[in-house]
Amino acid sequence: MDKSSLLTTGQMAKIHGINKRTLMYYDDIGLFSPVIKDEKGFRYYTYEQCLTLESILAWRELDLSIESIKNYNKNHSPEAYLELVEKKEKETLQKINHLKQIRSLLISKASAIRNSLGLQLNTINIEMYEEEYLLSSPVLNNDSYISIFSSVADTLKNLTDKSIYFHSYGSIISVDKLANGSKHYERYYVKLPRKIKHDNLYVKPAGTYLQIYWTGNWSTLPDAYNKIFLYAKDNKLKFADYSYEESIIDHTTANSANEYVTKILIRLKT
């Protein structure tokens, strides 16, 4: 075969925008081989092979395994092609939905941080809230770090996006216990963008809430509650049941624990 009508490894790589080492690797593993490999080890390809290489690169772009591509190239047919395409279409849609969920979570978390930066911190307000959906841990029996992190980890196992970094998270504590000086958290949760069917779904009811964005180390939260209870007493407010703490700015976004921002919501009796 006249080599002048063939493409060298460098020319083939340049046409397809890949590294020469990729072509050598594909040859070594038997995925895509040159039409000629001379005694000096130089590889030569036909122009017709460009389409084959493009199909391989396209399959790799879709994360199809080397072995699957090999099998398809050995036994390709319209039926085999359709089977692969339908499988990859389903997987691609799943990835798109997964990325959309992550985007939604990141937008929500960024919005919460942005809002907190524009608020007057450590100031009490009364706000109306719609129903919210939380994925809650079981009721905790103690506040040991092992218990807390095990609880959070078990809760995240139920999520598609298991990294807590993507989620707004927080804790739930009884107002009665707070009034008696206890700081024993009953549940930990991650916020959900929508209602789901799940045994651990916790619905935070709609209603009128006392709200404060508290800045400072988590160890200063008792000071926040002292301020809250004094405000409630002065304004003759009665609390319904639980306090919901949501971490807005934590160690992943603040340089110092003194810059943490925790959102506290307590539903009021009507």
Results as ranks from 00 to 15, higher is better:
135 L>P: 12
40 K>P: 07
164 I>G: 01
231 Y>C: 04
120 Q>L: 08
34 P>A: 01
155 T>S: 10
104 S>W: 14
162 K>F: 09
230 L>P: 12
32 F>C: 02
217 N>K: 06
155 T>V: 15
96 I>F: 01
35 V>T: 14
120 Q>N: 10
121 L>Y: 10
185 Y>G: 02
144 S>M: 08
2 D>H: 06
217 N>E: 13
7 L>K: 11
60 R>E: 03
92 T>C: 02
218 W>H: 14
94 Q>P: 00
243 S>W: 00
226 N>Q: 14
50 C>F: 02
22 T>G: 07
53 L>I: 04
152 V>Y: 09
77 S>T: 13
47 Y>H: 07
1 M>T: 10
81 Y>L: 15
66 I>Q: 04
253 T>M: 05
173 I>L: 05
136 S>A: 15
137 S>W: 11
128 M>Y: 13
53 L>D: 00
183 K>M: 11
13 A>V: 10
78 P>V: 03
180 N>F: 07
104 S>T: 12
267 R>C: 07
57 L>F: 00
61 E>S: 02
40 K>Y: 10
248 I>V: 04
192 L>Y: 07
105 L>W: 13
161 D>N: 04
270 T>C: 11
118 G>P: 08
2 D>G: 06
79 E>I: 13
200 N>Q: 12
78 P>G: 05
251 H>W: 08
262 T>Y: 06
48 E>K: 06
148 I>G: 04
65 S>W: 03
184 H>S: 00
199 D>W: 10
130 E>V: 12
268 L>Y: 07
76 H>M: 11
176 D>G: 11
173 I>S: 09
232 A>W: 03
231 Y>P: 09
5 S>E: 15
95 K>V: 01
105 L>M: 15
32 F>V: 09
105 L>Q: 12
163 S>H: 02
266 I>Q: 07
201 L>T: 10
3 K>F: 09
212 I>G: 00
259 E>L: 12
216 G>P: 02
29 I>C: 00
248 I>H: 03
22 T>W: 02
70 K>C: 01
128 M>I: 10
206 A>Q: 05
205 P>H: 01
145 Y>W: 07
135 L>R: 07
250 D>G: 04
151 S>E: 01
73 N>S: 09
118 G>N: 13
1 M>K: 07
235 N>F: 00
247 S>F: 11
137 S>A: 12
209 Y>S: 05
175 V>I: 06
98 H>L: 05
55 S>A: 05
174 S>Q: 05
8 T>V: 14
132 E>M: 14
165 Y>F: 14
172 I>P: 04
193 P>C: 15
40 K>G: 10
170 G>Y: 02
4 S>F: 13
76 H>S: 14
52 T>Q: 01
43 R>F: 06
